[in-house]
């Protein structure tokens, strides 16, 4: 079973990270799921693949009533992002799924109906969670051609999907980045190969540099906090991406 860690809390406004399953088979990439709660509602970010659903569900339900999840935010279309969609919909068939317009007819292959999907335009979207204002911000080509991140201005948390992801070696399972230089070595190959456009990367770095961010939360690896957030943005800005290692 995965564990939950509340990384931000202000009353009933919470960010909960659902991470690190010791029972997960090694052939599945490790993923981080995040739950944002406000009032009586919850928004689950990149809920993960069908194979990890039991672990994510059981961890989430220890913190939150899964039938009160009002929506899922899918940063892009990959199976590790939302192939569990049909299973989540079992608990609340009225749940919505926010996804880039580009993938709004692809992701239904994982489940849902025409009413399930809210197609987000390229420029992003304002999302309200029981009065909490969240912003879906563009991150196209990082790595998917239709890719969005989610920013919470109040919590100063940016969910960054695959940006900031690191493929950590076994045993290196801290929730937060503790030694940036050591950590970033595990992120470099991933970013060079998975991120397809230097121009898109440049624009993203410029955009997020202007935001107040205390925590940058990727879908794989550890969370960047404090000064490590800007350190990461600078590092990413200088990295040549869209390169195959061989």
């Amino acid at each position: 079973m995965k564990t939950t860690k509340t990384i931000f809390q202000d009353g009933n406004h919470k960010w909960i990270a659902i991470v690190r399953d010791p029972d997960k088979p090694n052939y599945l990439i490790d993923t981080n799921e995040y739950l944002v709660t406000h009032g009586g509602q919850g928004l689950l970010l990149d809920p993960g693949g069908a194979e990890v659903f039991p672990a994510v569900f059981s961890a989430l339900s220890s913190e939150f009533d899964p039938s009160a999840l009002s929506a899922i935010f899918a940063s892009h279309q990959d199976p590790d992002i939302c192939s569990s969609l049909a299973l989540w919909l079992e608990f609340n068939p009225k749940m919505r799924c926010y996804v880039s317009w580009l993938w709004s007819s692809f992701i239904p292959h994982f489940g849902g109906t025409a009413e399930t999907f809210i197609a987000m335009p390229d420029e992003g979207l304002d999302i309200s969670l029981d009065g909490l204002h969240l912003q879906a911000i563009p991150a196209h080509y990082l790595h998917s051609s239709g890719n969005l991140h989610l920013y919470d201005k109040i919590a100063k948390v940016l969910f960054s999907g695959d940006v900031g992801a690191a493929l950590l070696p076994p045993g290196d399972d801290g929730l937060f980045v503790e030694n940036f230089d050591a950590h970033i070595r595990h992120a470099e190959g991933f970013h060079r190969r998975w991120m397809g456009s230097n121009e898109a990367k440049r624009r993203w770095c410029e955009r997020v540099s202007q935001m107040e961010i205390d925590m940058l939360c990727p879908q794989h690896g550890a969370i960047y906090q404090g000064a490590d957030v800007q350190r990461f943005i600078n590092w990413f800005d200088g990295l040549q991406v869209g390169i195959c290692g061989s």
Partner: peptide, 20 residues
Amino acid sequence: HTALLRQAVEQSSAACGRAV
């Protein structure tokens, strides 16, 4: 589908699990 749901419900404390 049911096998995954069953596994999730067995591992979780969610009250709605059995009804689902």
